[in-house]
Design a protein around this nucleic acid. Sequence first.
DNA 1: AACATTTATCGTAATATTGCGATAAGATAA
DNA 2: TTATCTTATCGCAATATTACGATAAATGTT
Lengths: 111, 111
Amino acid sequence: MGISKTEEFSARHNRIAAAAKALSHPARVAILEYLAQQNACICGDIVNHLPLSQATVSQHLAELKKAGLIKGETDGPRVCYCLDGKAWSDIREFLSRFFADVGSCCVQKQK
Amino acid sequence: MGISKTEEFSARHNRIAAAAKALSHPARVAILEYLAQQNACICGDIVNHLPLSQATVSQHLAELKKAGLIKGETDGPRVCYCLDGKAWSDIREFLSRFFADVGSCCVQKQK
DNA sequence: AACATTTATCGTAATATTGCGATAAGATAA
DNA sequence: TTATCTTATCGCAATATTACGATAAATGTT
């Protein structure tokens, strides 16, 4: 992100931005949706499901994990990924609160 | 974003990612919230309200405009920015639909 | 016309992201 | 142990983002 001056902004704004950033790539959106559909979630399945190399998918998974949106549980040689329900509902809540706050403006000024 | 292979993903996934990307920087989150609060929105006010240079703010405004989230209306030498109500409620809708779809998984598997 | 005000754009530097091949690391199977 | 399978990490190249000073462009003022 370049020399991003994140410290200059409020924690809340940074949190919203960080959550949005996790969703800011179609591969990560696809992964989250796939995890939701499958409920199972072996890493290899995700790799096969996406048009990206194993290394790249692993990187996207790491980012989602860093953002707290998913958890990986080791199961033998495999890793089973799953949404983190708590973090997910947190993000969902403060994003929708943000939408509610912001959405109440200006709208009436437009046809 | 590097050599992003966006064409390989569905239009819907790309749309969600693009919307999230618009919100993925705290400055842009702060701008949107400020626009909502003020309802007015002269560019210079936004610049004064943020810890960034005029050039940088202008760049963030351009990104928000490109994403369709705001509109700028020229008023003499000034520009009056405002949320684009239609685009905003669109984004709000398909983001919350995404959250609804995805949120229904895995949650019960966690304590 | 000359000047001031406001905003956009250009050019550039620093850093981040994306993608992948190669390879390491870990677990299981033979 | 050796081989295999699965996933993570390293190293690199290509591109994108962030930030800002300088300057252009547009408007209004004197």
